[in-house]
Design a protein around this nucleic acid. Structure first.
Ligand SMILES: NC(=O)c1ccc[n+]([C@@H]2O[C@H](COP(=O)([O-])OP(=O)(O)OC[C@H]3O[C@@H](n4cnc5c(N)ncnc54)[C@H](O)[C@@H]3O)[C@@H](O)[C@H]2O)c1
Ligand SMILES: NC(=O)c1ccc[n+]([C@@H]2O[C@H](COP(=O)([O-])OP(=O)(O)OC[C@H]3O[C@@H](n4cnc5c(N)ncnc54)[C@H](O)[C@@H]3O)[C@@H](O)[C@H]2O)c1
Lengths: 220, 220
DNA sequence: AAAAAATCGTGATTTTTTTCTCAATAAGCG
DNA sequence: CGCTTATTGAGAAAAAAATCACGATTTTTT
């Protein structure tokens, strides 16, 4: 969740975080053959004012049309260009367990230009066996894979006890972005882009809001 | 990601979001038998100043000890109490597919007080078959389950085409919190707590930062 | 052709979040 | 015990984000 930005100060972090969500909404609208969308409609999905949506969009440089709003297709493409979606990023995945397997077989990643090139696991029983359309490799094969492909991202779905070690290995080999699913805060160098997908944090916040709303019903 | 807060204005949203991460770090430190932790150490994991950490922690009401920092165990428990972790929240899961199965078999949820009570899928082939220690139920059994258990949360791991429909069904039956893994923005009533776990958004932001850092290397 | 309506774009303002500064406190030590 | 040090806690200041207010633009209506 954090640390992506250590490298890139002075861009409006919060604005940026909303942009991928606009892209999703636009994709839905495109399927329904909607031609235009207003900032007010988009604002309905978020807890912000519609002006804020316009400011966010202005980051991409895309211009709306007074009275009509934004062209769904045009804005969608502008966001794709701005975020670099479709630029074809390559990744390796570590940890062919339950979650790793789900991700490997998930087609949704390709929609965001992310292609998994190879899958690693250190369990000797798993090495060599198939998962999706991959054969699981031993981590010792990583240097070879990195030499053959220009790998941008390492996806970590290993147990949390192994995550820091694997993270150190892949960054030592020059990988510059980590997508971490293990429930811990990794330490990385300043030049590494780190994104934590932290389900436990999500569960904890849900729990907090639930507790609060129950409490409210009891109170005066 | 958004919309949790529509109900709860005027608490420092950003502070709150960091708190579950502190809990994770504290759990690690507790395993290593560390007795104290400083705000500076915690700040090292985030892109914020150490005073901000102290302000975040002050939300929970827990007090540190000058010269030593915060008691790892004490702060951990204070966060648990504050967030309502361990309060035992009950959930139903819809969509026993790849991701749903991974979640069902994931022990990590229990650490945050989340217990899955029942699993639903509308695929006739799957209904009745086992997943983890559950038998998959038909969605038509939902009213019965809700009558027998006090279900707080619905976890949605159905395809995005089905997500809004399932969301409407469960909220109509009185479920007040949705944990959505489908890559779309759901529309919910003002009284429903919604949390989106949006991997696609994560992939998109990674892609953006990668594009930016490559660009930088080329530039002057 | 002018008026009305919808919506964008943006500068000004307000609110929220973060950082800065520093006094207060507890611990260790000569 | 008094001095030094590390660290908290809290108010002031700064920065960032969100909202407000309104002029500009395009379409629709009369
Ligand atoms: N299952 C879920 O739904 C879920 C959800 C959120 C987060 N997570 C997190 O994702 C991670 C994986 O979870 P899982 O349920 O898939 O666990 P799992 O045990 O099914 O899979 C982990 C895999 O990693 C492999 N592994 C262990 N050490 C390794 C190493 N050094 N190098 C390469 N591979 C290694 C194991 O052999 C195993 O195949 C955990 O950190 C977990 O906390 C899981
Ligand atoms: N697989 C992943 O790693 C992953 C990652 C992120 C997000 N997601 C999202 O999670 C969702 C599930 O992904 P998946 O890969 O597990 O897909 P999947 O196709 O393996 O599983 C979906 C399941 O939902 C069931 N289903 C469909 N309609 C239903 C309904 N109306 N009621 C109950 N059950 C219904 C299907 O029978 C199927 O078993 C998708 O929205 C996907 O975009 C998946």
């Amino acid at each position: 969740m954090y640390a992506e930005n250590k490298l890139f100060k002075n861009l409006p972090e919060q604005y940026l975080k909303r942009i991928p969500f606009y892209h999703q909404i636009l994709s839905e609208l495109a399927l329904k053959n909607e031609a235009y969308v207003s900032s007010r409609y988009l604002a309905g999905f978020f807890n912000v004012d519609e002006t804020q949506i316009r400011k966010d969009i202005s980051l991409t440089g895309y211009k709306g049309k007074p009275k009509y709003g934004y062209s769904v297709q045009g804005l969608k493409e502008a966001i794709e260009a701005y975020l670099g979606i479709n630029y074809h990023n390559t990744a390796v995945l570590f940890g062919a367990g339950k979650l790793g397997t789900a991700l490997i077989e998930y087609e949704g990643l390709a929609d965001y230009g992310l292609e998994i090139i190879a899958v690693f696991d250190n369990n000797p029983v798993k090495i060599g066996s198939p998962v999706g359309h991959f054969n699981i490799l031993s981590p010792s094969a990583l240097p070879r894979v990195i030499r053959s492909f220009d790998i941008g991202i390492a996806i970590l779905t290993v147990p949390k006890t192994a995550a820091q070690e694997v993270c150190d290995q892949v960054t030592a080999m020059g990988i510059k972005a980590i997508w971490n699913f293990a429930p811990l805060q990794l330490s990385v160098g300043m030049d590494v882009i780190l994104r934590n997908e932290n389900l436990a944090a999500g569960a904890a916040l849900l729990s907090y809001y639930l507790k609060k709303s129950n409490h409210r019903q009891e109170g005066p």
